[in-house]
Amino acid sequence: MIGSTVRGALTGLGSAGRIGALLAEIGNGGLSERLHPDPARDAAVQAMLPHVGMHGWSVAAARRGAGPDADLLFPGGPAEMVEAHNDLLDRLLLEAGETLSETRLSRRVRALVLLRLDLTSADREAVRRGMALLALPGHRIAAARMLARTVDTIWRAAGDTATDWSRHSKRAILAGLYLATLLFWLRHGDPAETASFLDRRLAGVARIGKLRARLSGAARLSQR
């Protein structure tokens, strides 16, 4: 079930080309504007989570968890419910990031990615259902908004203060890493395996960065 949903999510979010376009949108900025916090909406999301496994992100789950009028808090329908859940998790991550003891930026980013997944460990089925919903036609922009907000939250919680072009490139790179790690986690679920997968991806990014630096240095020398 999870494997088929992951395949569906990859197909729905896009082929390699469409995923690349989505990451480019994130890298260009403009998608990470925060939602306005709403305590009533947060409470409704938390109350409906136990029902999402059976009913999906739906009016039925909202009403069963938070009362007969709970769906009125989400005029955008199920996709807005998923977005509200994602936004709540981002804010919880931002708070949790203040307690991290890691000081190196790269290690803080790693810890925050894993913490973001850990925050949803009890609601993995709800996340899976949300990914399946976002894989449906018409939800690509909503998916991009959520991914952009999450990676922006991770960088902010890590302490990144860049304002130049690197701000956007960092977010585009992390978006790809986070999406791949999220899909791996949905498929396998094991925290240790997920951490190892993330470490391999981070190591790959580091190798590419070093190679680019060497090539850039060589190019500068050849121009002298």
Rank of each mutant, 00 (worst) to 15 (best):
T5P: 01
I19C: 07
L22Q: 12
L23H: 07
E25M: 14
E25V: 08
G29V: 01
G29H: 05
G30V: 03
R41S: 14
A44W: 01
A47W: 03
M48Q: 11
H51M: 00
H51T: 00
H55F: 15
W57F: 09
S58R: 08
V59Y: 00
A66V: 05
D69I: 01
P78E: 09
V82I: 10
E83V: 03
H85G: 14
D87I: 05
L88D: 02
L88W: 11
L89F: 01
R91K: 11
A96L: 01
L100R: 00
R104E: 15
V109S: 05
A111D: 03
R116Y: 09
T120M: 15
E125T: 14
R129A: 12
G130P: 09
A132V: 00
A132Q: 04
A132M: 02
A135F: 07
L147M: 15
T153Q: 02
W165R: 14
S166K: 13
S166N: 05
S169K: 08
R171F: 07
R171H: 05
Y178M: 07
L179H: 05
T181E: 04
L183G: 02
R187Y: 02
G189C: 06
D190T: 02
P191A: 09
A192P: 00
V205W: 00
G209K: 13
G209T: 12
K210F: 04
L211W: 12
